[in-house]
Amino acid sequence: MSRSAYETVKLARSGRRPTGLDFIQGVFSDFFELHGDRRCGDDGAVVGGLADLAGRSVTVIAIEKGHSLRERMLRSFGAPQPEGYRKALRLMKQAEKFHRPVICLVDTSGAYCGIGAEERGQGQAIAENLMEMMALRTPVISLLIGEGGSGGALALAVADRVWMLENAIYSVISPEGCASILWKDAKRAPEAAAQLKLTARDALAGGMIERIIPEEGLGKAEYYAALRQALNAELEGLLQLDTQSLLEARYQRFRRIGKEREA
């Protein structure tokens, strides 16, 4: 693959890319959306509900960017508010109660950046998701379908398996942000993108994800069908594990990252 890291970034952000809801409609059937965080609101950037995956009931949660400008504004361009993370956590807790697997579809440039979001505890909302997802007593698979922007993406990606689409990205900071902090020049983003190692192949090499889902070579329907098969097969395996082994493996999955980096 000769594509540069920044070209991948542009692909991951492309408005023509299928969004979370497209994946929900394509991969799952009988989706029933559940609204609200039961505390103060309902965030349009996070869509969640019940769905059928190859005959199995699952909870599916997606960050949705929207297609048209109107839609994108309604969904704050896929940047979740604290209410979005709290809704996601509510649905995950519900899934845990009924021992229903959870599938998260992640596509965000980052958590919403605004006065209200800070007032309502954006940091606390993300922190709580990280903590609670680590101990969620049901299988969780997260799929990064576009942008995996920092803590805002991680808050839906503390999972037993994390997969990335071929042209998705996963990064601690946007290449523009990195370039402007380090070199005081946002135009050097392509350089930063290359240094940040944010492509799916880099993430796989670093052990942050388990699988890359190819994007090319299949028609739309076959593509979604293949993904459905893959998710179903993976869930099959995860559901064989007893809860204790599942949670231990999830803990160790993250525990080992950065462990070997000692002088």
Binding site: A127, L130, M131, E132, M134, A135, S150, G151, L154, V158, Y170, S171, V172, I173, C178, I181, L182, L196, K197, L198, D202, A203, G206, M208, R250, Y251, F254, R255, I257, G258, R261
Partner: peptide, 26 residues
């Protein structure tokens, strides 16, 4: 915040530390 020079390795520390806090808390 997270140290950007270590990229995703830094980001993952958020999940790792949260997991350890959770076990301690539980």
């Amino acid at each position: 915040g997270a140290r950007m020079q270590e990229g995703l390795y830094s980001l993952m520390q958020m999940a790792k530390t949260s997991g350890a806090v959770k076990r301690h808390s539980d």
